[in-house]
Design a protein around this nucleic acid. Sequence first.
DNA 1: CCAAAAGTGTTCGCGGTACACCCATGC
DNA 2: GCATGGGTGTACCGCGAACACTTTTGG
Lengths: 228, 228
Amino acid sequence: MFEYEYPRAALAVDCVVFGLDETDLKVLLIQRKLAPFQHAWALPGGFVRLDEELDAAARRELEEEAGVSDVYLEQLYTVGTLGRDPRERVVTVAYYALAKLSDHRIRAATDAMGVGWFSLDDLPKLAFDHREIVEHAVLRLRGKVRYAPIGFELLPPRFSLTQLQKLYEMVLGTGLDKRNFRKKMLAMDLLVETDEVEQGVRHRAARLYRFDRRKYDRLTKQGFEFAM
Amino acid sequence: MFEYEYPRAALAVDCVVFGLDETDLKVLLIQRKLAPFQHAWALPGGFVRLDEELDAAARRELEEEAGVSDVYLEQLYTVGTLGRDPRERVVTVAYYALAKLSDHRIRAATDAMGVGWFSLDDLPKLAFDHREIVEHAVLRLRGKVRYAPIGFELLPPRFSLTQLQKLYEMVLGTGLDKRNFRKKMLAMDLLVETDEVEQGVRHRAARLYRFDRRKYDRLTKQGFEFAM
DNA sequence: CCAAAAGTGTTCGCGGTACACCCATGC
DNA sequence: GCATGGGTGTACCGCGAACACTTTTGG
């Protein structure tokens, strides 16, 4: 047992993991095994250990609860509303993560009972205030994807411009003009044309590109700002 | 005494309070009375009570330690780096606040030994990792002031366009063209011309304006986005 | 040859930027 | 009358937006 002079809140982390399906932007949820909210869907997360960094705790919980690793992870905000956990005061540091659903390890790891990918407009009832956290994460993603090259974290290492555009359309919730999108994206000079093309499609195969992080870092140091 | 099955981190809040002097953007610091970092300057802040919301804790500490109330307050991010407090694990939710230094109550309240306003480029050595938190807050303020009408939180209720422009120049750290600034700001149609003018200046007195929050809220609902 | 999506240029209008002088006021 | 900052307009350029057809490929 551990004793303190004043009462202390429990500290947790929760993760909103986004993944890009062929057709949809999805969120990773797990089914709770224990009360409260037993059997309800919830964000992966759990308590922070005393000797563990916050983002390490987030990654550990993702691995333990959903088998997910190697994601882009960023802190979202911290919620500590009184009564948000019926048991006791729990303050949770929320994170959002971007996973490459094209990564077969992730597909395999999350292919289990009690772990699932849900479309944003088809979420089940969520435990605690996790619904609000997801909403918040969506807004953040929407804001950030326009000013930072994080969209690429949702795509395979090699992708077509159409895939990239679809991603922006899903995240922003709007249609975009193909010619203008390509012009603007290519003009930033951050994509490298590979000599590969799409495979297994029954129409003209699209050229694949990769994101050049090196170049991005270099340009950024010179004051360049990503914008879409 | 309070007992728990697992060890728990202490939870704190810290506030970076910005204020706009005649000449400078300043940060409010307090001088620590107790170890660790006794006598060092630090951000106002303290431990969160178990029955208290996070932002309420931030406001309470501001009031208790610096006599400051009625500020614009927004969560910044949460730091929990191991070893950041030499005593034990402390996780702190950082906030930033914007205070109207024109408000005489604030000037009076912070006019005490152990409370001081410091220019950003003349900060003393700070306790803990508070220096990093301040840097982070400056970046956030710089990013946000361009896309949200929060600059007004630093000015008196009635202000001249020159004051407003100086504010932007200080926060952004760049010079701005007077005619273009006025054109753009007035074009957003969020400022209301009052019939007052600057007092006690020995040159032509500037017209004073006020920010019309109602109008801003209305326009925002219609999809308008503030940008400078 | 047909279906499906890839790929490609031009025009137009608005908004951002650069730029300099006269005016009002207090002392 | 002079010093100090207040206040104002125009020209240009670049970027974002609108918009449609030809090409490639697999079946």
